[in-house]
Each structure stands twice: as C-alpha cells, then as structure tokens.
C-alpha cells in the first residue's frame, strides 16, 4: 500500500492548514476514505484527522433553525429530538442510509462528499471514467447504465450522486458552511454538487483546503417525507429516492419542495413541479400533472428508461407520505 503520514488537527485553522498541503486528505468518519484508498481512487500522502475539533460535533439552535456540526455522527443527527420533530425528511433519509454500524461512524459533513457508486468508477483497474482520470471518457454511457442518471447527464458522465441526506438537505434548502484559510463560504446544498456539463471530473464545489464545518437548516418541515426505492430493504443505495416537504393550508398546498435522489449528479429539485403545486389540493389530479411537468427535461440512457417512471411515481408517493406526516 501507499505509505502516508497521519496527523491529528488540534484546531480548525490547523486542519485547514494541513488540509491545504499537497496530497492531503481530511479524515472524519473514514468510512468512504478507506474505500477510496483500498480501490486506488485516492492515494493520500497525508491524512488529517479532524476528530478532535470538538465544537463540530454538536447540533445547535440558530435563529430560525438548526446548525448541525460537520462531525455529528449520522445516527446522532437522525435521532435528535428536534430533527425528528421538525425535519422528519432528514431523519428518515439518514436512517435509510448505509447500515447501523456505518451510521454510528460516518459524519454528516462527510456524507455528501461520498463519491459516485458507478461500478466503472469503483473499479480497481479503470478503463474509461472521467471522474477517475479526466479525459478518459465514460464507459457507463454505453455500458451498463441501468442505475445511472436521467437528468443533467452528458456523454462525459452519467453517474448519480448517492448520498441520501444530501437529497433531504436539498429539499430543505440547507446551506453547507465551508471554511478555508480564505474565510467562510455558504453554499446551498442544491448547488454543492457539480453537474457534468460544468465539469465531468468533479464531484463537488469544495476546493483544496476547504473544510465543511456544518450544515444549516432553517424552516421546520413537519409535513415532510423521504422515500427510498431499492431492491432490498436495507444497506443499499437508492434506485431513486424522493424528498418532499409540504407547507399545507388544510388540504391545500401552500408551498412544496421536492428533491430527487440517484437521478442526477446532484439532488434534483423538481422546480417546475414545485411552482405548479402551489394552491393545489392534496389528492387531486393536479398533483400528478404537476409532477409530470417536472419530468419534461428527463432523458433516459440506453438502459434506464424505467427510472423516469419510477422517479415520477416515487415523487407522487412521497408527496402523499409527506402530507400524512
């Protein structure tokens, strides 16, 4: 294996300093970094362990919402009383992620940074994958693409963003707080991941030496739900998922936010649908029409036309589930 140096950062400044060095990688829960190092996706020279940044492992009330420290373990976030009460979509998305063991170790700040699960990306010997070697092409585009994107893909990359919590965060208009030696950036989760038309080799907008310190969510969304569709009932990535938050006036939708997972390289908001749903009655035919409108720009690959139907039905179902919460 590739030898590396292990350092434990004693402050956020120290972490950013170390993280800025050549070949550095930040180590939080480590559940994904270990995979990368095993497969050869990353061969860091320096691991910067940030576990001692104690102030990052808390969930704090901020004005009009919550700030979740980046080092909070997934299960701690999912089981937090305020999250369960006010943000069931997030709690549910987390509890449907990974396995209980992984959720006890993995952090909420690290989770949206996991890389695509595309089998061509995850191979030990890579043939064509722009996310492994920029410019090498995309074997999945004409290969086995049953689980790949239906929105926002290009022939240069058809992979999908796999994090469940990121989808819930996108529906909640969450903001990722990022620090670097240059200062603090606030990035909406909806814009945190990079679509291939912008850069097929990129995963997120996070730059070298930048550290996620927390994620902020604001308006409580008690009428919200996360639906995850997968062949088996646990420990499996989504075929598609749907996160929905509803602001209801009795049976009428005042406002809706819908994000789909595993359909694009970022959590995919159905903005056209959200606009059309305003003022519509739950259970009416208008709901399905509104959802259909959100799929106008969906494009199937050679092997995944079913995902358009599946994602549409999942969105519809998630609206129902959110209204029942």
């Amino acid at each position: 294996m590739h030898n590396f140096v292990y350092e434990r950062a004693n402050s956020a400044d120290n972490a950013m300093d170390l993280g800025h060095r050549d070949g550095a990688a930040i180590l939080a829960g480590g559940t994904e970094l270990l995979n990368w190092m095993r497969i050869g996706i990353e061969s860091p020279d320096l691991l910067v362990d940030i576990r001692d940044l104690g102030h990052l492992d808390r969930i704090e009330e901020i004005e009009g919402g919550l700030r979740i420290g980046a080092l909070c373990r997934l299960n701690d976030v999912a089981c937090h009383p305020a999250i369960k009460r006010d943000f069931p979509v997030l709690s549910s998305a987390i509890l449907q992620s990974a396995s209980a063991q992984l959720r006890n170790l993995a952090t909420i700040g690290g989770n949206p940074l996991q890389r695509v699960r595309c089998p061509y990306f995850r191979e030990e010997t890579v043939n064509a994958c722009n996310k492994r070697h920029a410019g090498s092409g995309c074997a999945a585009y004409e290969g086995h693409n049953e689980r790949m994107a239906i929105f926002g893909w290009t022939p240069e990359c058809v992979a999908v963003q796999p994090s469940d919590p990121a989808v819930a965060f996108a529906a909640l208009d969450a903001v990722v707080i990022v620090q670097s030696t240059d200062g603090t950036r606030r990035i909406p989760m909806r814009e945190f991941h990079v679509l291939p038309d912008e850069d097929p080799s990129a995963h997120s907008v996070l730059g070298r030496g930048e550290l996620i310190t927390g994620i902020e969510i604001s308006t409580p969304a008690p009428h919200s739900a996360y639906l995850k569709v997968r062949e088996r009932q646990s420990y499996e990535y989504a075929l598609v998922s749907a996160a929905v938050t509803l602001d209801l006036d009795g049976e009428t939708i005042r406002n809706a936010r819908i994000a789909l997972g595993s359909v694009a390289m970022r959590p995919w908001r159905l903005l056209a649908t959200e606009d059309l749903l305003v003022g519509k009655r739950l259970g009416s035919k208008d709901i399905a029409e509104a959802v259909d409108a959100g799929f106008a720009e969906a494009r199937a690959l050679s092997g995944n036309a079913y995902k358009i139907t599946l994602a549409r039905n999942a969105a519809l179902r998630a609206i129902e589930l959110a209204s029942e919460n």
Binding site: N35, R117, R122, R232, S234, E236
Partner: peptide
C-alpha cells in the same frame, strides 16, 4: 458486495 445486492436480514 457494494455493487451487487444480496438479501439482508430486513428482506
């Protein structure tokens, strides 16, 4: 075993 689902207890 990450890329090919096999049954888990929950199934």
């Amino acid at each position: 075993l990450a890329g090919v689902p096999i049954p888990v207890n929950a199934d």
